[in-house]
Design a protein around this nucleic acid. Structure first.
Lengths: 129, 129
DNA sequence: ATTTAAATGTTATAATATAACACTATGTAA
DNA sequence: TTACATAGTGTTATATTATAACATTTAAAT
């Protein structure tokens, strides 16, 4: 198991505690009191945390959330639901979906090693508003 | 059917002719000779073109490609394959996949109106290298 | 013709991300 | 335990991506 470095730990903890995806500069602002002063320090930690699967990047939002799936060691098969009204993001952990996508082959004959899926819509709360 | 405005036409044409996804500032550079001078002119056209489904944004690359699918009027169900070596991007047009994803419901009870899927891997050419 | 909506042009600036370089800590293997 | 390699840190500067605000023009709809 990977041991997080000091900066990686600080940055993972703040993302993990956040109820919503965090943007890099918001993370930076929040960790300045802990001595992390420069964007690059944040981005380096983010890169590593993504690489080892502790966090995921929500590409359509340029934001990061902690992995919700304890068995997820690397970010090679990710799916998220995103509410376009309240911006709540949830990691989807559905074995039927992941099986379907992991086995998907298209006619171009590409060998896929990774995928990322983002669903957009309205969450339960926002539907009724 | 939507008629493109002058800037929209210029910007669509250059994306449509490009063999690979184009980034906004690369588009800007290429259309300066046609009188489009400012980033905002490009972004406004891109926004509109995405909205009407003439182009798609490849979120993981911050780049834009013309829609390959003549029946695709709006960008509400998109899937792409991306070669991580040569960066070739292809729009996937697979009815089994789109049916599966359009009908997908997860336990959170969200109502999905849109999805975007990106597969990553190596294309045929790059596998053999 | 008048009104409305959509698109344009322009300047400035915000937000996101990386390059380059010097240095420090940690793990590993002789 | 020293040497060596690898990963991580700190820092300044800068590149890249994207939007705000406001004035004006064009196109479409009544």
């Amino acid at each position: 198991m990977h041991t997080l470095s000091k900066n990686q730990r600080i940055i993972f903890d703040i993302i993990d505690k956040s109820p919503e995806p965090m943007k890099a500069y918001s993370i930076l602002f929040n960790v300045q009191k802990k001595g992390i002063k420069a964007p690059l320090q944040v981005y380096r930690a983010l890169d590593k945390l993504v690489e080892i699967g502790k966090i995921h990047k929500i590409e359509s939002r340029n934001a990061f959330i902690a992995c919700q799936n304890s068995s997820c060691q690397v970010s090679k098969a990710t799916a998220f639901s995103i509410c376009e009204s309240c911006e709540k993001v949830t990691e989807i952990n559905n074995s039927s979906l992941s099986k379907y996508l992991s086995n998907f082959k298209d006619k171009a004959g590409m060998k896929y090693s990774k995928y990322n899926l983002e669903f957009f819509g309205l969450c339960k709360k926002c539907i009724t508003k």
